[in-house]
């Protein structure tokens, strides 16, 4: 396998114990495992495949299909910028640029200290509040590039750039 990771499998084992060892459990297990590790480490996917008797190729297929899953370590805080049509028109690009500038990452990237991951999403269904920025579970409507530092401070990660 890739990555030279030596991941502690205990959290994965705990998750797997709670579900019947069958293919139908796959997505539930992946969601819980993702919560436990904040991403899907390859060793964990191998273990999930073995335990649920699902071919590894299927597990990998599902793990790469859903946007909710990440195969690379993610930041403790996930910042999403909506780049849907309404948000785009109302300044999502400037918002995203400023966010990436402050955290010094590319869209989709994660800060080296694993503090933040920046993602873009396509319409979160709150177009009336466009542009929308989401820090973990907190939604900021009419978000302004000038306030990006403030949004980040309200979060659990360390916003060292401000």
């Amino acid at each position: 396998m890739s990555a030279s990771c030596s991941v502690d499998l205990t959290p994965a084992e705990k998750v797997l114990e709670r579900y019947p060892a069958e293919e139908a459990s796959l997505i539930q297990v992946l969601q819980d495992v993702h919560r436990a590790y904040n991403y899907l480490p390859c060793e964990v996917l191998v273990r999930v495949a073995e335990t649920l008797h699902v071919p590894l190729a299927k597990v990998f297929s599902v793990g790469t299909f859903y946007k909710a899953f990440s195969l690379t370590p993610q930041g403790r805080t996930i910042v999403k910028v909506c780049t849907g049509t309404a948000c785009h028109i109302r300044g999502a690009v400037q918002l995203l640029d400023e966010l990436c500038r402050q955290l010094n990452v590319e869209p989709g990237g994660t800060t080296p200290d694993l503090g933040f991951t920046v993602k873009t999403v396509n319409c979160v269904g709150a177009c009336a509040m466009a542009p929308v920025l989401i820090v973990d579970e907190t939604y900021y409507g009419n978000a302004a590039a000038a306030k990006v530092g403030k949004y980040l401070k309200g979060s659990g990660g360390k916003a060292d750039a401000n």
Partner: peptide
């Protein structure tokens, strides 16, 4: 056997073995 599957989605979708290994 199920050694290969489609991975990713949308325009990035392709047929590949797990982790491209």
């Amino acid at each position: 056997v199920s050694a290969i599957a489609t991975v990713n989605r949308g325009i990035g979708r392709e047929v590949a073995p797990p982790y491209h290994q």
